Computed example of a mutant assay.
Amino acid sequence: MILVTGGAGFIGGHLAASFVSAGRDVVVLDNLDPFYDTDIKRRTIDVARQAADNGDGSYELVEGDVRDADLVADLVADAQFVFHQAAQAGVRTSVKNPRRVDDINVEGTLNVLDAARDSPTERVVFASSSSVYGKPSYLPYDEEHPTTPVSPYGVSKLAAENYVRVYGDLYDVPTVALRYFTVYGPRMRPNMAISNFVSRCMNDEPPVVYGDGSQTRDFTYIADIVRANAKLLETDAADGEVLNIGSTDNVDIRTLAEVIRDEIAPDLSIEHGERQAGDAEHTHADVSKAGDVLGYEPTEDIRSGVGEFIDWYRKNREWYEPLVRSS
């Protein structure tokens, strides 16, 4: 059995559906926190359930919290692999409430690791983040770059990542930490830059860029994230390692907004808002280590990936609308 914590979220949901489609038995642990929209999470769950209905693997949803140590222990005890995606996401959210981020991202991770220490789990894969790097000394970031996070979210991911490493070293828990670089694609959270820009342009509203738009990001297409994780079902080559999972290029936020605007509604202007506290200035991944260890090679650059997301959005605008339930 594969356990995916946070499996009703964007990345966790894609992992769960992909594993089920590959014939695996999957259990998802998710508390359905309405951080961005519980309806979106329920649609994400339905995608994986549909894969199970199609005769592939099996799917079970457990509504619960990674902060519930007893529940986590029960689930991990039966898991061959654990993909620990559950977290309080959002740099800006972390600035407002750093203790909540620590409670979920660090204490929740410790619950998973403690449970894995006492079980025959073959591997714990931890979803880390490019936010651990913070201020760039050089670009692109390789895994040896100094880690100086600039937000409580980045600090929480770095702390959890260090626990993952230590549990691997001290307690022989096979672990891998994947540092994701700004993941996007179908079913992504509506409060991310790309989905926000697309939504506003589709509604004939100008995209809003925070700050002057000179900040750069390495955006990673969700299918590449799924492939990197799936590889860890097949090999122990990455055990004990930290790996960047990013793309091949980066783009400044204003250019990103212009690319999306030009594709959907070229007559719209670009508006600017106040720069948000805790936002990193630049991110850019060196993925050569992941290439060497896992054969990882990103398949989408930002322009082609955004084009695919726009096409998906046009066909699935209801994804971000409230579900209509019968009384």
Rank of each mutant, 00 (worst) to 15 (best):
residue 49 R to C: 03
residue 36 Y to E: 07
residue 316 N to H: 12
residue 50 Q to L: 09
residue 233 L to M: 11
residue 188 M to L: 14
residue 192 M to N: 11
residue 174 P to K: 15
residue 269 S to N: 12
residue 298 P to G: 05
residue 239 D to I: 13
residue 109 T to Q: 11
residue 29 L to G: 00
residue 115 A to G: 01
residue 308 E to T: 11
residue 48 A to G: 02
residue 175 T to D: 12
residue 169 D to G: 06
residue 272 H to K: 08
residue 182 T to Y: 15
residue 77 A to P: 13
residue 173 V to H: 14
residue 125 V to T: 07
residue 228 A to H: 07
residue 194 I to G: 00
residue 146 P to A: 00
residue 264 I to H: 01
residue 198 V to M: 05
residue 20 V to M: 01
residue 293 V to S: 13
residue 87 A to I: 08
residue 31 N to G: 06
residue 241 E to Y: 08
residue 22 A to K: 14
residue 230 A to E: 12
residue 128 S to Q: 06
residue 159 A to I: 15
residue 118 D to V: 07
residue 90 G to I: 06
residue 231 K to W: 06
residue 175 T to G: 08
residue 279 D to R: 09
residue 216 T to P: 01
residue 192 M to G: 06
residue 94 S to F: 07
residue 60 E to C: 02
residue 91 V to C: 03
residue 285 A to N: 01
residue 86 A to H: 02
residue 78 D to G: 13
residue 279 D to N: 11
residue 149 P to N: 10
residue 16 A to S: 12
residue 188 M to D: 14
residue 100 R to P: 01
residue 149 P to E: 03
residue 32 L to A: 04
residue 66 V to S: 07
residue 120 P to I: 11
residue 91 V to N: 01
residue 78 D to H: 12
residue 177 A to W: 02
residue 59 Y to L: 09
residue 122 E to F: 08
residue 234 E to Q: 15
residue 132 V to K: 04
residue 242 V to L: 06
residue 242 V to K: 03
residue 34 P to F: 03
residue 244 N to Y: 03
residue 176 V to P: 09
residue 4 V to C: 02
residue 166 V to R: 14
residue 212 D to H: 09
residue 281 E to K: 14
residue 217 R to F: 08
residue 132 V to F: 08
residue 64 G to D: 05
residue 231 K to Y: 02
residue 102 D to N: 14
residue 306 V to C: 01
residue 241 E to C: 11
residue 127 A to P: 00
residue 249 D to G: 05
residue 132 V to E: 01
residue 308 E to I: 05
residue 192 M to T: 07
residue 259 V to R: 10
residue 3 L to Y: 00
residue 253 I to Y: 01
residue 308 E to P: 01
residue 46 D to Y: 00
residue 133 Y to S: 05
residue 314 R to F: 04
residue 216 T to A: 02
residue 113 L to Q: 11
residue 262 D to E: 15
residue 271 E to N: 09
residue 192 M to I: 09
residue 175 T to N: 14
residue 174 P to Y: 13
residue 236 D to Q: 15
residue 81 F to G: 10
residue 186 P to Q: 08
residue 213 G to V: 08
residue 38 T to Q: 08
residue 282 H to Q: 13
residue 192 M to D: 11
residue 44 T to P: 01
residue 209 V to T: 00
residue 145 H to V: 07
residue 219 F to S: 00
residue 268 L to I: 10
residue 263 E to W: 02
residue 177 A to V: 02
residue 207 P to R: 05
residue 247 S to A: 15
residue 99 R to H: 13
residue 37 D to H: 06
residue 67 R to S: 02
residue 1 M to S: 12
residue 101 V to H: 14
residue 207 P to Q: 06
residue 254 R to A: 08
residue 286 D to Y: 00
residue 327 S to H: 13
residue 277 A to Q: 14
residue 23 G to V: 10
residue 36 Y to M: 10
residue 141 Y to P: 00
residue 66 V to M: 10
residue 141 Y to K: 00
residue 138 Y to V: 09
residue 19 F to R: 04
residue 74 D to R: 15
residue 56 D to Y: 08
residue 322 P to L: 05
residue 205 E to M: 13
residue 85 Q to E: 14
residue 243 L to F: 12
residue 129 S to P: 05
residue 251 V to H: 02
residue 147 T to K: 15
residue 239 D to S: 11
residue 125 V to D: 00
residue 229 N to M: 08
residue 267 D to C: 07
residue 301 D to F: 03
residue 163 Y to S: 14
residue 314 R to S: 04
residue 298 P to Y: 01
residue 66 V to T: 12
residue 56 D to C: 10
residue 222 I to D: 10
residue 74 D to E: 15
residue 135 K to N: 06
residue 122 E to D: 14
residue 62 V to M: 00
